[in-house]
Design a protein around this nucleic acid. Structure first.
Lengths: 232, 232
DNA sequence: ACTGTGTGTTACCGGTCAGTAACTTTTCGC
DNA sequence: GCGAAAAGTTACTGACCGGTAACACACAGT
């Protein structure tokens, strides 16, 4: 039940130290937040203490408490930052296919799979955090619930735009798939069930999006449908 | 970041106390393990201390350490117990439809949805635990990984028995669905995306299980396929 | 009665936790 | 250069953590 590898004091090789025209050392608050994001994501919320965060950020607990009211507030802030990055990633993943919602969903999941299978991935910051925050009144919970609700909403909207006959059902199913991939990533290495997410999404899209009537499209196209059907 | 509601010392009303021919008070070890299962599941592994477990079980830390080598060992034992119950539940859910793998899968998921939507559910003990145990050498991790691998395997076998053309893909997709439901249960109340799992499973079964050729079955049956297609 | 086993009790260990006080030093805008 | 703001330093509080020592008791089988 140990928590973390021992921290090294002093500036790490990769740190932004002043000198020879390099970028100025970022403000304490930013360094702390950055460090907290790494540590919280890697080791969990309860496993990482504020002292460890502060010293890993090259500062101390006192400076920490000048920037943040409490550890719980830092956790909430950590989650907000993660959220911002998450939606930036999301928008970037679907941007190349604007106007084609089906392709956007596929691209989103392809991107998601690649990212989540990578070494060092620990799944979803929000999903992991909510496991450690069962108390209903923790400031981080609002952030998490908002984030997940937004995810659900976006997937439903994309499903509707893709022409799904039951966009709520398709959106929610996609959400289950995503969440499942995030969670299963923790128990399996990169060869877990997550590897089929791409195929699964295409199967679901095929099943939920009605094919155009046969006399409205050139023959042969409607029959094989679109995307990759489940082999067989 | 508080951990648990205050514990009450002394025997709780529901406890099995000796008297008037009632069953004898269970042995300490069993009481501790029972309490640990409740507390760990509800509040998480790190949030619950051994002292809290012992006193909630009506004993003390010393007796605790006579039964268990360490908290980490208790965690592993907790997970083993959860595993036994889990497979008993699983077998019970699919037993009524022995011989019809498709119905078994449907029954499994229906049962799973009902259970996981219930008040007080906190998703999957194993999924939650693995979030809190990033260290690769924790005795609990073996239990978790074995459990999840078994789950994956069983879903693949059921998929094969159901006649799926790509049973590995179907099994893994079902696994993602299940894991996703467990995880999303923590961020949503009972009205989360989990509610569509039943429909999603039937859609996937329809898509993965080839329909018998038209001249082998009475007309009208093959056309509408089986189960509940996505509305529309 | 005697003894062994299981259990309860109290006090303690070293370590870590979140959070604070008081003071010094560095940095930056002007 | 000056003053203010930001950051570093040391020492501390009170609570809790996992884990242990030493001892008292209660009840079983013989």
């Amino acid at each position: 039940m140990k928590s973390m590898p021992p921290t090294e004091t002093g500036p790490a090789p990769g740190d932004a130290v002043q000198g020879s025209g390099a970028a100025p050392k970022p403000r304490v608050r930013d360094r702390i937040l950055d460090t907290a994001r790494n540590l919280f994501y890697r080791y969990g919320l309860r496993a990482v203490g504020v002292e460890a965060i502060a010293s890993e950020a090259g500062t101390n607990k006192m400076s920490f408490y000048r920037c943040f009211d409490s550890k719980d507030e830092l956790i909430a802030e950590y989650l907000r930052e993660q959220g911002q990055d998450y939606w930036a990633w999301w928008d970037g993943a679907i941007a190349p296919h604007a106007g084609d919602a089906r392709r956007q969903i596929e691209a989103l999941f392809d991107n998601y799979m690649r990212l989540t299978c990578k070494d060092g991935s620990r799944g979803c910051s929000f999903g992991n955090a909510v496991v450690e925050l069962p108390e209903g009144d923790h400031p981080g919970r609002r952030v998490i619930e908002t984030h997940k609700a937004e995810m659900r909403s976006r997937l439903r909207v994309l499903s509707a735009e893709a022409g799904a006959s039951d966009p709520e059902a398709l959106g929610d199913t996609l959400m289950l798939l995503m969440e499942g991939g995030y969670l299963s990533r923790l128990s399996f290495q990169s060869q877990g069930p997550l590897t089929v997410a791409g195929k699964a999404v295409r199967t679901l899209l095929d099943a939920h999006i009605p094919v155009p009537s046969a006399d409205a499209v050139p023959p042969g196209r409607a029959a094989r449908r679109r995307g990759t059907a489940p082999a067989g």
